[in-house]
Amino acid sequence: MTLSMHGAAVPPLARSLNNLSGILAKAAAHAEARGIDPAVLLQARLYPDMFPLVRQVQIATDIARRGLARLAGVESTAMDDNEASFEELIGRIKATLASLEGFLPEQIDGSETKPIELTIRSETLHFSGQSFLLFFVLPNVYFHVTTAYDILRHNGVELGKRDFLGEP
């Protein structure tokens, strides 16, 4: 059986983002139950030179949404980076999931050898569609979802591996 580009992209991205949404819901409940100002968690960082939780979620959703749009050869929907609550971050994830689920297999499949150029700061990276998905999009989304999880876990939110991985 062959794994299509759509199959390699949409289900794992959707699963990670759905799990992130659940993690954020647990964080909101944690803050409420303990009388913690949600802004404390939303602006928490693992280290001073790292992005806070809010930005980790924004980046994860941007990379997923923009990555699939690039593979499909369409313009990505823009999102403002103005979320200031757990509810707004969860809404951003829901909007990203709707965008991902809107891509039909025929829009993504066949993009394995599509040349992808991505300029980051002053460097232009060159990928095939498959290497872009496997070595840029998926690892970046996983990195930022993991970092969001770690920030919240470090700040006392009761999370476990199942929260990150989701139900089998």
Rank of each mutant, 00 (worst) to 15 (best):
M50L: 11
A98R: 13
T61V: 07
L97K: 05
T77N: 12
S111Y: 10
H30N: 09
M50N: 02
L97T: 04
S128P: 00
L53V: 04
V57W: 03
M79K: 12
P38A: 06
E117V: 12
E32Q: 15
A84W: 02
R65T: 11
E88F: 01
G35Q: 05
A72K: 02
A72D: 09
K94H: 15
D81F: 13
R66M: 10
G67L: 09
E87S: 14
S131A: 12
E87L: 09
P105V: 11
I36Y: 02
L89M: 10
S111P: 10
L42S: 01
L24D: 04
L97S: 08
D49Y: 06
I23V: 12
R92E: 06
T96Q: 02
E75H: 07
E112G: 06
S111V: 09
V40N: 06
A27R: 04
Q43C: 08
R121H: 13
S99E: 15
E88K: 12
A72G: 14
D81R: 13
A78G: 11
S131C: 00
R45E: 01
L20N: 05
V57N: 03
R66V: 14
H126C: 04
G91I: 01
G129D: 10
E87R: 08
N19Y: 00
Q107W: 08
L97D: 04
P38S: 07
D109S: 05
S131K: 08
L104Y: 14
P105G: 09
V54S: 15
G35V: 04
E87P: 02
D80N: 15
L68D: 07
L133F: 06
V54G: 03
H126N: 10
T113W: 12
R55C: 01
F86A: 00
Q43T: 14
I36L: 14
V57P: 00
G110K: 08
S99Y: 11
V57Y: 01
P48M: 05
R55G: 00
D62F: 02
I120N: 10
F127E: 03
M79Q: 13
F51T: 05
I36W: 05
R45S: 00
T119D: 10
L125V: 02
I116K: 03
I59N: 05
I108G: 01
L118R: 10
A31S: 11
I93N: 09
M50R: 06
E83C: 08
E112L: 04
A69W: 11
A78D: 14
D62N: 12
S131L: 01
L134F: 15
G102A: 09
G22Y: 00
E101M: 13
A78M: 13
N82T: 14
L46S: 07
F51R: 10
P105Q: 07
P38G: 05
